[in-house]
Design a protein around this nucleic acid. Structure first.
Length: 224
DNA sequence: GCGACAG
DNA sequence: ATCTTGTCGC
């Protein structure tokens, strides 16, 4: 949590860019050491000036739910492409503090390394929670790629300025692919493998799909 | 100037 | 992301 104070004040676009550029120098796309046992998925839902964040934690092997925590707070920053972390991290961290278990890896609903300054939501978040992270996006932010095959498991790489920044994965036969990118302290190969572990029968991997279902559910019940 | 643009 | 019903396709 050593970078938390960075968000304790209003930031201009230029200041946010400087923060992203500085943090990006510390990103390490490296192989994950060991086998993940407990993993978490994060998703947020908005309504007017408030938002709710949900963190679901699963057993990597059995895909059974281990824990579920959530938090609600007022949204202070509007959405701006490239600066999603500044809008969603505050509320996410509030839910993170309630977490009783300690996940090995955390999946986020957005980009990781596949960002203009290599500092997408998942990557930025890693510096607060100090855990390996992976970004799972339903659409592309930046980069170029060739359409992957149409069968589940087919994939291609996403490039930006001659650098590999992500993976375009077909998670189900004949459906739009999703965009996977390492957040931090994990590499492309592991990000792909761990994501595929959660690809059962839907386009969105269970780890983030479940978080999204709970987020929509809690909204309907009143809390938000 | 024009097109792109995570959630 | 959010506002919302029916409907086309496998």
């Amino acid at each position: 949590m050593k970078y938390k104070k960075i968000h304790d004040f209003e930031l201009t676009r230029e200041e946010m860019i400087l923060i992203q550029e500085k943090l990006s120098q510390e990103v390490e796309i490296i192989s994950y050491k060991g086998v993940p046992k407990i993993v978490s998925g994060v998703d947020l839902s908005f309504q007017r000036d408030k938002a709710i964040a949900v963190i679901v934690t699963f057993d990597y092997e059995s895909l059974s739910l281990i824990d579920l925590t959530w938090a609600i707070d007022f949204v202070k920053v509007s959405y701006m492409p490239g600066f999603l972390a500044f809008r969603e991290l505050p509320i996410f961290l509030k839910a993170w503090e309630k977490l009783q278990c300690e996940p090995d890896i955390v999946f986020f609903d957005g980009q990781g390394y596949a960002h203009p300054r290599r500092m997408g939501l998942a990557t930025h978040a890693s510096f607060f929670i100090e855990k390996p992270t992976i970004g799972i996006a339903k659409s592309k932010l930046i980069g170029d790629y060739v359409e992957p095959g149409y069968k589940k498991g087919d994939y291609s790489f996403l490039y930006h300025k001659n650098e590999k920044i992500g993976i375009v994965l077909r998670t189900k036969d004949k459906v739009k692919p999703i965009f996977i990118s390492p957040g931090n302290w994990i590499d492309f190969r592991d990000s792909l493998e761990y994501t595929l572990n959660f690809c059962t029968k839907y386009r969105i991997p269970e780890i983030t799909r479940q978080a999204h279902l709970y987020t929509q559910n809690l909204k309907e019940r009143g809390p938000l």
